[in-house]
Design a protein around this nucleic acid. Structure first.
Lengths: 158, 158
DNA sequence: ACACCTTCGTTCGAATTTGAACAACAGGAG
DNA sequence: CTCCTGTTGTTCAAATTCGAACGAAGGTGT
């Protein structure tokens, strides 16, 4: 009756996929972190903040919305935005439609920093991930992990 | 002449794969972290230490070897092993063949903790990742990310 | 207008992570 | 044996992260 009490462990194929995911993710993060820090003095998190802001209309986003996209805690974002503000890359504005709201906005200096940092970062992502995989593998990654992400998003906000 | 100075940006498919990877990885880590902490009081990192030790011959590994497998810094491992030692889940032994060496060994209590924590963790990994993907997608993940990991490992130790 | 529950962003303390510096040792070339 | 170079694990200060608690404000129903 082991199937009743015992969990369904991962078979070798499943384990390989899971380990591959964890290992690749850790190694990749570590590598990108190092490269960004050396190249531009930015952490990966700070870089992502700039990216998300520059992709948003008006180069600005509300704190909560930004935290959701970055998948980080609100307090963590407060800290990092403060750092970026000190560096002159981001500015805080108050929200017109909500007194409580705070809008983080990309400064000209922030835009310039992103313009300078992006090429090296993208090149490394390409070298370490994109160009290592085939077109088909990329498609599977996008579709599969997209569905995984969607499932996780739903679980978070019921 | 933009192709000479401009980097090759990611096209929509490539971007989807990259974003999917980052988002899924962050959401998954966050979720697993929460579950492990609530369920067993362990961090994901601590859990992985126990897993790697229990998978090693003699339920023990040298610190450096363990740090490599966990993909973490040596100092980070020192800290976490100290925590686990205080909790009685891991013990430090000295290495017979190398006076400098320190061997981390799983205690009976650590083995028991792992036995108790593993089912819930595996079930969640299955629910959030494995069972969301098809057999073919899992195979692609394993093969592709395995190659990505291998490439990254080589880059680290030239 | 009123109470009530939710949302917003920040602050706080505790936990964790990292890289650099360090002392002690290993291993080989000469 | 004796330098010399590379490893090993730890310590240290600094940076980052998180969750809980908080004050302030939005939104709703009555």
């Amino acid at each position: 009756m082991s199937s009743l009490n015992e969990p369904r462990w991962l078979d070798p194929d499943e384990m390989a996929a899971w380990r591959g995911f964890v290992v690749a993710s850790n190694l990749l993060n570590r590598r990108l972190e190092r490269q960004l820090k050396e190249d531009s003095g930015l952490s990966h998190q700070q870089y992502e903040i700039l990216v998300h802001l520059s992709a948003a209309p008006g180069d600005s986003l509300r704190m909560t919305e930004l935290a959701d996209r970055l998948i980080t805690s609100k307090s963590g974002l407060t800290y990092q935005v403060t750092q970026l503000e000190r560096a002159g890359l981001v500015a805080r504005r108050s929200c017109p439609s909500d007194v409580r709201g705070v809008i983080a906005e990309l400064t000209d200096q922030g835009r310039e920093m992103l313009r300078q940092a992006a090429p090296g970062h993208v090149a490394l992502v390409r070298e370490l991930l994109i160009d290592v995989l085939t077109r088909e593998q990329l498609a599977v990654l996008a579709e599969g992990l997209g569905r995984v992400s969607a499932r996780l998003r739903l679980d978070e906000t019921p």
